[in-house]
């Protein structure tokens, strides 16, 4: 591979109130690497990953940064590329809160990974080809939850849901997997299994993996290279083994403790709209009954 799997050049993102979530970030990740992205809460890890997949656009001004994946532009100067959907098809995304569709079965959630490449008439009729179904079952076997394939996703534990999300990335045929705090909501054993699945994907299939973590010990165990962020800036980029407690204290000061212990309670990231479930049913039913 001669081209870089991921190339981020001078990316900045300013949120409302002038807070800089990303401040001139430039990184390159080669095809086949497994890279950890560490930093305390609010350091910009999630924001960076969401930019890589084109779920968010950077600041809209000339020279505000560009992202290329596999040589193709995802976004430049705050504008998403026209074929961002095609690029997303090659990029798997694993979220902290799993982001599965609870009422669909596990296998349907995994088959969602094929939406980007199947013809529309098939996907709109829920007609997945036999070969894709077999691939989905095989992927679920690989992550060890094939027995749950025909249950609703909601019935799985957090760790199992996260492995289903990884199976989705496998079926997607992703060449790059972005994992945003995939183990922050899991107990240590489930966390270990999820990290093993990601490492398997990297070693077995040669998939490039970028995983954000806030526990340095996981980064050191699974990822040869670590990129550390603080206040939206890259403060370290090198071998994970170099991240000694002294080095972390130097980089983060008092915040280093959160990264070392990794047990800092992470409040579940609330959705942007903050409304989950079905509020106001009573009012709605009142309208339904009247009229």
């Amino acid at each position: 591979m001669t081209h870089w799997a991921v190339e981020v050049r001078n990316l900045s993102k300013t949120f409302g109130g002038g807070r800089k979530a990303l401040d001139g970030v430039s990184i390159t990740v080669a095809a086949g690497e497994m890279v950890a992205l560490i930093g305390a809460s609010g350091s910009g890890k999630s924001t960076l990953l969401r930019h890589l997949s084109g779920l968010v656009a950077g600041d809209r001004r000339a020279g505000a940064g560009a992202i290329k994946i596999g040589g193709a532009a995802v976004q430049a100067n705050g504008r998403l590329s026209a074929d961002v959907r095609r690029i997303r098809g090659d990029v798997g995304f694993v979220f902290q809160q799993f982001n599965l569709v609870n009422r669909l079965t596990v296998i349907t959630n995994v088959l969602i990974g094929t939406l980007g490449r199947l013809p529309l008439w098939r996907t709109l009729l829920f007609r997945f080809p036999e070969t894709e179904r077999r691939r989905a079952i095989a992927a679920l076997q690989r992550v060890g939850i094939a027995d749950w394939a025909f249950q609703r996703a909601a019935t799985l534990s957090g760790g199992q849901q996260q492995r289903a999300a990884i199976a989705r990335a496998m079926v997607q045929g992703a060449k790059l997997v972005l994992a945003d705090e995939p183990i922050a909501s899991l107990d240590p054993e489930a966390a270990r299994r999820v990290m093993e699945s990601l490492a398997e994907l990297n070693r077995g299939d040669g998939v490039t993996v970028i995983v954000s973590l806030h526990q340095v010990q996981f980064a050191m165990r699974y990822c040869p290279r670590t990129i550390a962020l603080r206040s939206g800036q890259v403060v370290f980029d090198g071998p994970s083994a170099a991240l000694t407690p002294q080095k972390l204290a130097e980089l983060y000061g008092a915040e280093a403790e959160e990264l070392l212990l990794g047990e800092a309670p992470t409040p579940a990231k609330t959705s942007p709209r903050g409304t989950i479930g079905f509020p106001r049913p009573v009012e709605a039913l009142a309208i339904a009954a009247a009229g």
Binding site: S53, L55, R85, R88, G92, N99, N102, L115, R168, Q172
Partner: peptide
């Protein structure tokens, strides 16, 4: 979940 689906290129 909708964002999860968007991220697959749907």
């Amino acid at each position: 979940p909708v964002e999860g689906i968007r991220a697959t290129g749907a």
